[in-house]
Structure formats: structure tokens, C-alpha cells
Amino acid sequence: MRLARAIGGLVLATLCLCAVCAPWLATGDVATQHPDLALAPPSLNRRTLVERLPPTYRTLDERLPLTWFSGTLVRSADPSEPLLPLGSDSLGRDQWTRLLHGARLSLGLTLSGLAGAVLIGTAVGLLAGRREGWLDAALMRVADLFIAWPALYVVLVLRAALPLSLPFSALFALMTFVLTLAGWPIVARAVRAVTASERGRESVLAAEAAGASPTWILRRHLLPAATPVIVTQALLLVPAFILAEATLSFVSLGFSEPTPSWGTMLREASNPFTLRHAPWLLAPAGAIALVTLGVNLIAEKR
């Protein structure tokens, strides 16, 4: 199954690269609205509006003039009619540009949430796994309580209890905090299981007998043994975190307009009638599915 893993890695790497290069790959501006081009379909040609409700366009025979490599990869040379590789939303904003910038926010939040969850989870797992006793039991019971509860409920309750409208940087920190709180028990449980079994191994006992300090054992024996488990658990948290962001932003508990994130963009897709008319509004859902697919392909064991 090395092929599956390679494909998964490639998918994730491409998505991350797209997110990093978002300003260069973008074909327009995140917040610029084109009221004449609301819900316009993807096209390389010029188009005219023939009906306003629902917005219907006729594609003309004339190609859009494009400029390549002038600060960005490609852009329409005519400022009045932008290039829309993925169509536009109901306010006439460039869907492709918003998807790219949304990837930055969604993936960035996921990564910072992961960093927090892995750090705290590893610390707690090592602490609990090092010695049996009341601390181990207490920490693991707390983790069990968190895990047993449906993950999205944990995130929703934690988020709803915090102030609702905040400036962007505070909001980002707060969402990271919520994801960290929801994610640490899963990492902690796995790390604790490995640490507890590793602790009894002869190599560790030998190191102890040779007078190794607890820090040394932690650094040279327990942490390396736990690393593969940590990586797997972190990978499996990625789809959950992305979905949590999407759901929270969808119900306006997460990021808010005009900042694009995959969740705020999905709000456009919530009306089935608009969606039937403009299926390209599902692009963020496709992006979420693509990330999940990449993760699943990498984590594939069979």
C-alpha cells in the first residue's frame, strides 16, 4: 500500500503548497464584489447577464484577455470582468481566490490546533504512563470522559461558552484553544498506552539500572517509541479539526465574513435551490473531502 500512501502525501502536499502560495495563485481579490457577476459559472469567455433571478448568463464567443506572470500567475487584463476559474458566489466574489485564502485559514487553524493537542496530549500521556498511581488513573478518566462525548458537542459547548464576537487574532487564538482542548485526550490516551508498555521493557530497565536519569529515559526511550503513535493520532485529528472549523463557521461561531474560510464559504451552499443552480459553491466541501482523503490514504494500514 505504498502507492496509496504516496498519493495521499502528494494530495496533502499539493493542498498545503496551494495554501502557502495563495496570493500568487489567486486570480482576484478576496473581498472584491462584482454584483453583475453574482453566481456566475466558471468560464474563460466573456459573458452577459440575460436574467437576474436566478442569475443566468450567456457565454459570448470572445475570450477574456489574460495577463500571465504579472505579480500573480494569471489574472484578467480587463478590471471590469474578472477571471473566475471556479465561478463566483452570490455576492459575485471570486470563488477560487476565496478557496485558496480559505485553505490558509482552515489549514492554518488545523495545524495550530494540532500543535496544541499534540504538545499537551504528549505531555499528559508521558506523565500518566511513567508511573502507575492516582495521577495516571485521574488523568486517564478525564481523557475518557472527553473521548466518550461526541467530539462536535465538546467543540460546540466550549466555543459557545466563550465570547461570541471577537477581533480576528483573538478569535484565531480562541479557536485554537478550543480545538486543543477537544483533541488532547485522544493523543494522550495513545501516548500513555505506548509509554506504559515501553516502561517495562528490558532496555528501559537496563538504562535505569545503569543510573540513567528519568529525563534521559523520557528523551531517549519513551519519546522515540511514542513518536509513530503521535504522528498517526495527529493525522487522524486533521479531518475532525477541519470539520469542526467548518461546522462552527457555518453557524457563525467561527470565523465571520468577509474573512474566507471553508466553513464560512459553505454557508453559501446551505440553500439547496441556489446550490442546484450553482453547484460550484460546493468547492469548499470538495476541498474538505480531499484533505480527508489524503489523510485516510496516508493512515491506511492494510
Partner: peptide, 24 residues
């Protein structure tokens, strides 16, 4: 195995949005 990995990658939220269009 391939179908199951594809389905596993479609979160319920995404499936619901697509199905809502078909259903409407």
C-alpha cells in the same frame, strides 16, 4: 477497499449538502 476509503473521506456534512440538492 477503494470505495470504503472514498466514503470514509466524505464527511456526513458534505454528503448531506450534496444529497439536499438531489432531494430538493
Amino acid at each position: 477497499s477503494a470505495i470504503s476509503i472514498l466514503l470514509l473521506s466524505l464527511p456526513a456534512l458534505v454528503v448531506a449538502l450534496v444529497l439536499a440538492v438531489v432531494a430538493s
